[in-house]
Simulated assay, not measured.
Amino acid sequence: MSYIVSIETSTAICSVAIHNEGKLMANADLYLEKSHSNSLTPLIEQLLHHCDLQMKDLNAIAVSSGPGSYTGLRIGLSTAKGLCYALDIPLISISSLDSMTTQVLNFHKDDKSIYIPMLDARRMEVFYKVSDANLIEVEKMSNLIIEEDSFSDYLNQYKSVFLFGNGAEKAWDLLKHKSENFIFIDNVNPSAQFYGEMALEKFEKEQFEDLAYFEPNYGKEFYSPKSKKKSFLDLNR
């Protein structure tokens, strides 16, 4: 038995799942803005209760390695590290983009096609990654400003180019007239329920993260705009 709790908080969706030997036992996704800090720990406790499990039964924690929301990823990782420290179990990282591709491959697997998950990075920019039907990386995770010729090179190499994720919506507006080989799939979001097999594989290979030093790949540097409100020091200058 290998019980793994998976945590996915890279977007506005707070997602938790429990897998046993890679098979889904229970999952919960909350589509509520800013729900991560208040809902994550109660969701984990509720799922453990429903599965008749206790914290001591867990063998590992899997958490999103990004890209995505800086705040969301920080909350997810802090919770995951806290559990790992307290229970003395390993930490596993899973790409949010890979979880999306795994979801799509359950219904649209085609060895002659390519898969491009995208997460919105504001304006016309997206975080993306390109994988084949076996989840083998063709183009590593990066960020990109979508243009009319984006991903056009893949049209000559593959039967279909699948685009999905909340970042793919704006890409679709530009690319849908370019070729019928571009295929857009709606309502695909990162979800912990699709971590199972990937987390199990890393667990069996002991591909664990360093609890002290592991940080998510945020996709780009975090930017916090300077407040326009005057501070106490400003007022007294």
Rank of each mutant, 00 (worst) to 15 (best):
L105A: 06
A62I: 03
L163C: 02
T9Q: 09
F107T: 15
L30P: 05
S152K: 14
E201L: 11
A62G: 11
D88F: 01
I13L: 04
D110I: 07
E137P: 09
I114R: 03
A62R: 00
L32M: 09
A171Q: 13
A121G: 06
I44P: 03
V188K: 00
N59Y: 00
C14Y: 07
P216I: 02
M55P: 00
A199V: 12
G72K: 08
T41F: 15
F162C: 05
K228N: 13
L40I: 07
S15A: 08
Q54P: 01
E221N: 13
Y223P: 00
H108Q: 10
S191K: 14
P216E: 03
L43R: 04
L119G: 04
Q103D: 07
Q207N: 15
S39T: 02
V188W: 12
A60W: 03
I146D: 06
R122H: 10
S95C: 08
I44W: 11
R74L: 01
G22C: 06
F232N: 10
D132V: 01
F164S: 05
I75V: 15
Q46K: 14
V138Y: 08
V138D: 07
A168H: 08
S35Q: 11
K229H: 00
H49M: 08
R74T: 07
E209F: 01
L91Y: 00
A62S: 15
V16Q: 01
R122D: 04
K178V: 15
H36M: 06
E206D: 08
A12E: 15
A80M: 07
L155F: 03
Q103S: 12
F214E: 07
V161C: 10
S224P: 01
V104S: 03
S179W: 10
L30Q: 11
D153G: 02
I185C: 06
I146E: 05
W172R: 06
V16C: 01
S35K: 03
L48G: 10
K178A: 10
L119I: 15
Q46M: 12
N166Q: 02
D29G: 02
F194Q: 02
L119W: 04
K81G: 08
